[in-house]
Structure formats: structure tokens, C-alpha cells
Simulated assay, not measured.
Amino acid sequence: MNATMTPHELRQKIRLGQHSGNTSGYSEGYVQCNLVILPVDWAAEFLQFCQQNPKPCPLIAMGQPGEFDLPGMGVDLDIRTDIPRYRLFKDGSLVDEVEDVSAHWRDDLVVFLLGCSFSFEEALLNDGLDVRNISEGVNVPMFRTNIPCKPAGRFSGNTVVSMRPFLPVDAIRAIQICTRFPSVHGAPIHFGDPSQIGIEDINRTDFGDAVSLKAGETPVFWACGVTPQVALEQAKPPFCITHSPGCMLVTDLPNSRLAVM
């Protein structure tokens, strides 16, 4: 990974097919975003779903119908090409994963960018904490839970969480740090016993990769931007595009703009 690569440089590499993996640890200092793209007649209800569920779905930006460049999010940004991998859904079912959605673009599509926990990982690292998915070079572990979201129109479902293990003293510090970043999921929503939130086996992820838990560590869980994909499965829109878990849009927006001091 390359923490010093600028977001524009990384997006160019992605666009040229030179990077197709997860984006955790890349372009330190800049906001990374989850992606949801829906037809315009589903957009208002999804916007309401985000507003009702700001922890898993913190809205960073929303485009106009047909807009794929999202002015203000990045120089020469093209949402159709600048994410490493996309997921295509039809009637709520995942039908394909691709590295470019230009061929699927339509003038009635609306882009939603949601805050991602990869943005606050930088603050954890700067405080000397070990972010296990970065130190082990894998995608962050993500799990479906039994924590319900607030429904909005046709959208409902349970929260997805990401997990990072810490010693208890470091978990407390991580909570303090992440509380300053409500636009990228903020403080964790659970720590300790995974079964209390419906996770039966911490080594069997629903998305991403498993990481090691060392002696004395406890799992810490953050609301995750993959949550909308579960809501999409329930709502079954005729067509939808999302990011593949761990493969984010890296914007030119500094993380510092999102911090609450």
C-alpha cells in the first residue's frame, strides 16, 4: 500500500486498471467513501434512510441525476471508473462485480457517497494504535448483525459492522478518537462479546477478511457503510451499483474537515 500517494494519483491508477484491491491505508489524510448509485425514483427514499441511520450511513455527498463527476469531491473524478471494484445488483440480488461501470451508466442514476471507517484509521495509527487489518495487509473484517436500522420507505434491514481488535486500554482510546469523526461512523457501537449483536463466529466474516485476535484483546465494532447493501437486498430496486466491500472512492476532501474538535 502507499499512504503518501495523492488521491488523484490513486484514482488514475484505479482508472487504468493498475490497482484493483482494497483502499485501506492508501492516500493518508483524505476522506474515503462508500458508494450507492440508484435510479432517481428510488433516491428520495434512500436519502431518508441515510438521514434516519447516520451511524452506518453518514452522507458525505449526493449527486444530481446523471452526474458522475461530483464537483468538489476530487479533481478529474469519474465515479464510473475510479473505484477498484463495483457490485451490480438487480432486483436486490448481486449479479456481478466489475472494475468499470461506464457501460452500465444511465442519465437517471443518482450517486450517494457515504463516510467510511478507513478515514478514521489514520487517526488511530497516528495515536500509535495497531489497526490490525492494515498491519496484516488485509481488508477489514465486516459482519452482519441483529441491530435493526430505522426503516425509510422501501428500505430496511440490519446494521453491518466492521471490527478491529484492541487491548481494553487501547479500545477506550479508540472510542475517544473516533467520537471526533461522526461523518465517518464515529464511535464504535459495540465491543466485547460478538454474540450479543448476532455474530456467531468472529473468524467467519460476512465481508472482508478475518484478522488475528491476540491475547487479552477485545473485538471493537463500528457501524459500517456496507449496511446499505443489506438494505438493498431487502428493498429490491430494479438496478443498483455499489462499491465492493473495502474498495472505496478516495476523495480530495481532507479528513481534518470532518473532525469535531
Score class of each variant (00 low, 15 high):
residue 248 M to K: 09
residue 174 A to K: 10
residue 181 F to A: 11
residue 167 L to G: 11
residue 78 D to M: 00
residue 173 R to H: 14
residue 250 V to D: 01
residue 145 T to M: 09
residue 80 R to F: 03
residue 229 Q to I: 07
residue 105 W to Y: 01
residue 104 H to D: 12
residue 98 V to L: 12
residue 229 Q to H: 05
residue 70 L to F: 08
residue 166 F to W: 14
residue 259 A to N: 06
residue 219 P to I: 07
residue 158 N to I: 10
residue 237 P to D: 08
residue 63 G to K: 01
residue 16 L to F: 05
residue 154 R to F: 05
residue 30 Y to P: 04
residue 245 P to F: 13
residue 211 V to G: 02
residue 66 G to V: 11
residue 122 E to H: 07
residue 112 F to H: 01
residue 181 F to L: 13
residue 127 D to W: 10
residue 78 D to A: 03
residue 255 N to C: 05
residue 211 V to M: 01
residue 240 C to A: 15
residue 126 N to R: 14
residue 124 L to Y: 07
residue 119 S to N: 03
residue 41 D to W: 10
residue 186 G to S: 07
residue 23 T to S: 07
residue 184 V to N: 04
residue 250 V to P: 02
residue 39 P to M: 03
residue 218 T to D: 01
residue 220 V to D: 07
residue 72 G to L: 09
residue 157 G to R: 05
residue 121 E to V: 03
residue 1 M to L: 08
residue 62 M to S: 11
residue 134 I to C: 01
residue 203 N to G: 14
residue 1 M to W: 00
residue 120 F to A: 10
residue 76 D to H: 12
residue 85 R to F: 00
residue 129 L to M: 07
residue 230 V to N: 02
residue 183 S to L: 15
residue 97 E to A: 11
residue 38 L to S: 10
residue 214 K to M: 13
residue 74 G to F: 09
residue 194 P to R: 15
residue 68 F to Y: 08
residue 97 E to V: 13
residue 167 L to Y: 09
residue 101 V to P: 02
residue 103 A to L: 08
residue 17 G to P: 01
residue 111 V to C: 09
residue 35 L to Y: 08
residue 87 R to H: 07
residue 110 V to Y: 00
residue 238 P to H: 13
residue 122 E to C: 11
residue 90 K to C: 12
residue 125 L to P: 00
residue 167 L to E: 06
